[in-house]
Design a protein around this nucleic acid. Structure first.
Lengths: 107, 107
DNA sequence: GCGTTTCTCAACCTTTCGGTTGAACATGGC
DNA sequence: GCCATGTTCAACCGAAAGGTTGAGAAACGC
């Protein structure tokens, strides 16, 4: 039996899935467009999206042929609460986060 | 190539390892004592501890026969920063966290 | 020295993960 | 109606995860 915390953290454990979440920060995207930058099959990305959906980190809505993917940031809250118990992290401001993203996207 | 974020999130993905971290919130512990509440072999717990150590979430120091395990909360910081980018979570107070822990430990 | 305690290593097993490919299935354009 | 588009499904594959057991290596008690 996978708890919500299991689902969230194992979803976040894969770099492809974290990259997808980062892309969805910008805007909602169709599955095909999500898959575009990755050097793997569409089916593989589709599987990643299903895992993110089961974890509640994104939602998928089908309009016509296109399935739109939308970030659901609230799902990170439980995990974030859990983590903050270990050390009382001060909240991080957006500037720090932007710099962090820039640095990590270089790889 | 496992990035620090990969190591942290996949370490946190396992409920046994999260339980170990919670136990270590109280105090440093010897490997045998960490293993005691779990219904699995000592070797299995030893493996979990190695994974937590690789992720930097704990440190292990050998004194005599006994290997002491110590929580290293700073390692959660990078992951916490990453997560806080998705929704600007307000800081959580300790009372909320205590209640959350109580609730999760019931399972 | 000798047995006990503490912990890890090595080999093995089963299940899950992350990917592939090819087929299937709606939907939309014309 | 027909073909192209967008997405998932099903079967498969190799590798990694999470557990077991048995053996072994240090350190301690006496």
């Amino acid at each position: 039996m996978d708890t919500p915390l299991d689902l969230t953290f194992s979803a976040l454990a894969d770099p492809t899935r974290r990259a997808i979440l980062t892309m969805l920060l910008e805007d909602d995207m169709a599955v095909t467009d999500v898959a575009d930058p990755f050097e793997m099959s569409l089916a593989a990305v589709s599987k990643h999206l299903r895992i993110l959906t089961r974890a509640g980190l994104i939602s998928q809505e089908k309009r016509g042929r296109v399935t739109w993917c939308k970030l659901e940031p609230d799902a990170l809250k439980a995990a974030s609460v859990w983590m903050q118990g270990f050390g009382q992290f001060e909240p991080v401001n957006l500037d720090d986060f932007e710099r962090f993203l820039e640095a990590t996207l270089k790889d």
